[in-house]
Every structure is written in structure tokens, then in C-alpha cells.
């Protein structure tokens, strides 16, 4: 039987997971879909590839949905306040990172739509640059899954660690804070896509600039994993 306070916190986590990630993905998809719609007036034959670019933005919402379902399906696992806090932290982790990624990918995707409007041949390169900001959402999802696993939501654990809640909150704080990089990567990616639509050969150099920002994400992930590791969550 779930503890009432813990269950409330866990439900809040599920709501934030899908709510934040979904809003971000929606905002991003709006940008991409608007650009695609406008393009159909001039180039209806680009429908297929612009549809792919627009749908890809949805992935961060899927990650939020995944965590929300995992929390709600195992709500009875939330027996202690720590577990409730952990579920809340997992939801915030994937929600905030999903939000920034959704918006960032949307910026890049709408630039990709503009790019393929002029030159269909750059689709592959534009696709790579559009997907790169997803790294932030992936790390947010990874952090959330590790927290939920340590808290017993993904299968039985011997006993949740004593510092579960605080460790989960701190790791989430790092991941959520650094996830702003995903939005910024989307902005840089959009510039890169504009560049390659004029000169395809710029792709190799431009991808380096987009990826440079990722170092912060990676350091954030490393610290988050160390926090969870040293507090016996994983």
C-alpha cells in the first residue's frame, strides 16, 4: 500500500514528466509543422521528408510519457517519502530536459524544413543536425530511469538507500540545469543548417560547433551518475 504523501509526490512526478516534456515537444513541433505547412504551398513534393523532420521532434514527449507510465504503473511501490521524492525527481529530470530539447529540436527542425525547401539533397545532413539536441533528453531519461531503478519502481530492490531522495534531487538539479544546452544546440544547429543549404561542404566543420556545447551536458551527466553512485542509488 502506497504512502499517501509519497504517492502524491510520485503522481506529481508523472504529471511533470509528461507535462513539461509534452509542452516542449509541442512548442518545437509547432515551429516545424508551421514551416512545413507553408512549404506545401510551394513544394508539395517535399511532404514526406518534412513530415519526418516534424515527427522527430516528438521524441522528448515520448520519453516523458515513458517515465510517467513507469511511475503510475508502480505507484504502490511508493512506500516512503524518499521514494516519492525520487519519483518526483525522475519526473522533473525527464520533464525539464524534454522541454528544452523539444524546443531546441523544433528550432533546428524548422530550419531544416527551410533548408530542404531550397535543396532537397541536404536532407541527411539536416537530419543529423536536427537530432543532435536530443542528447539532453536522452541524458534526462537515463537519469530518471536510474533513479526509478534505485527506488524500486522498475523491479524489486533489497532496500532503497537512505539518501535516495536527496541524491535523486541533486542529480536531477544538475541534469535539469545543464539541459538548457539542448535548446542552445538547437539554435546553433539552425545556423549550421542555414550554412549548409548555401554550401554543403560546411557540414563537417559546422557539426563540430554544434557538438562543442555538449561538453557541459556530458559533465552534468558524469556528476549526476557519481552522485547516484556514491549514494548507493545505482
Amino acid at each position: 500500500m502506497a504512502n499517501a504523501e509519497a504517492a502524491t509526490l510520485a503522481i506529481a512526478g508523472a504529471v511533470l514528466a509528461l507535462g513539461l516534456a509534452g509542452v516542449g515537444a509541442s512548442l518545437g513541433q509547432r515551429m516545424a509543422a508551421s514551416a512545413s505547412s507553408l512549404l506545401m504551398a510551394e513544394r508539395p513534393e517535399r511532404f514526406g521528408i518534412t513530415l519526418i523532420l516534424t515527427v522527430l521532434v516528438e521524441t522528448s514527449a515520448i520519453y516523458g510519457l515513458l517515465i510517467a507510465i513507469l511511475i503510475l504503473a508502480r505507484l504502490d511501490t511508493a512506500n516512503s517519502l524518499d521514494q516519492g521524492i525520487a519519483a518526483l525527481a525522475a519526473g522533473v529530470s525527464v520533464g525539464v530536459s524534454g522541454f528544452t530539447t523539444g524546443v531546441g529540436e523544433g528550432v533546428a527542425a524548422s530550419a531544416s524544413v527551410g533548408g530542404v525547401a531550397n535543396r532537397e539533397a541536404i536532407f541527411g545532413k539536416a537530419l543529423v543536425l536536427t537530432v543532435l539536441p536530443e542528447t539532453g533528453a536522452i541524458y534526462g531519461l537515463l537519469n530518471a530511469v536510474l533513479i526509478l531503478r534505485g527506488a524500486g519502481f522498475l523491479g524489486a530492490v533489497a532496500a532503497p538507500p537512505t539518501q535516495l531522495g536527496i541524491a535523486a534531487l541533486y542529480s536531477t538539479l544538475i541534469i535539469a540545469g545543464t539541459s538548457v544546452v539542448s535548446y542552445l544546440q538547437g539554435r546553433v544547429g539552425a545556423s549550421a543548417i542555414s550554412a549548409i543549404s548555401r554550401r554543403e561542404e560546411a557540414f563537417g566543420r559546422d557539426i563540430i560547433f554544434v557538438v562543442l556545447l555538449e561538453s557541459v551536458l556530458i559533465y552534468g551527466l558524469l556528476i549526476a551518475i557519481l552522485i547516484l553512485r556514491f549514494n548507493a542509488v545505482i
Partner: peptide, 15 residues
């Protein structure tokens, strides 16, 4: 950062 970047292999697999 290059080495840690490969953590995405596990992250995407898990996702």
C-alpha cells in the same frame, strides 16, 4: 568529454 560521450550508447539502448 569524448570518452563520456559514448555513454549515449547505453542511454539510447536503455531508452
Amino acid at each position: 568529454s569524448s570518452v563520456i560521450s559514448y555513454a549515449r550508447l547505453m542511454a539510447i539502448n536503455m531508452a
